[in-house]
């Protein structure tokens, strides 16, 4: 009887660690530097994704905007929130780029073109980035301790699933470099 209890307790502990503990333990996690709300910008400023996340002239995607873009509106406080005040004090005034962590950054052997997906394929931002654009809080950035990959990034499985479904190119070197 005692042996059974020890066995079951051990089993429960092992399963608990595997299911609940390990998936968190393999990621390091840190908050984003600024308490940024996509929702506020979309609602109050009427901003669309491409207003800040823009293409460059050569078709490459600029990704997370640099401080210049933010300072264009936030040179002085526009609202009364502590988050904005913090942002201006710590980054805009000293002209320091916030060390944003990119959730969707791909490994160095991946070629991804926003132009091909957005301009040619008419893929919506949400299809890959989820509801991030409507969120009120930026989730913590979680990074795999072993691979260094972001937890919220697109995995190759996600890419391939869509490419197969849409009967698009899916040979290795279409996306790998």
């Amino acid at each position: 009887m005692r042996g059974k209890i020890i066995f079951l307790a051990g089993l429960a502990a092992a399963l608990g660690a595997g299911w609940a503990g390990f998936p968190y333990a393999i990621y390091t996690s840190r908050p984003q530097p600024v308490d940024f709300s996509h929702k506020v910008h979309a609602d109050k400023a009427g901003a669309k994704c491409e207003d800040c996340h823009a293409f460059r002239d050569d078709g490459t995607f600029a990704g997370i905007p640099t401080l210049d873009k933010c300072a264009g509106c936030h040179a002085a406080a526009m609202g009364t929130t502590a988050a904005e005040e913090n942002f201006i004090d710590q980054y805009v005034t000293p002209q320091r780029e916030p060390p944003w962590a990119s959730y969707a950054r791909q490994p160095e052997n991946v070629f991804f073109s926003h132009a091909a997906h957005v301009k040619l394929g008419n893929v919506k931002c949400e299809s890959c980035h989820g509801a991030l654009g409507a969120s009120d809080k930026l989730p913590r950035y979680r990074q795999d301790r072993i691979s260094g990959y972001s937890r919220l990034g697109m995995s190759m499985t996600d890419c391939i699933a869509c490419h197969r479904q849409q009967a698009r190119a899916d040979s290795c070197l279409d996306c790998h470099k």
Binding site: D58, G59, F111, S113, A115, A116, K119, L120, K177
Partner: peptide, 9 residues
């Protein structure tokens, strides 16, 4: 890749 991207843009 770069040429494809330029065309796509």
């Amino acid at each position: 890749h770069a040429a494809k991207q330029k065309a796509a843009a």
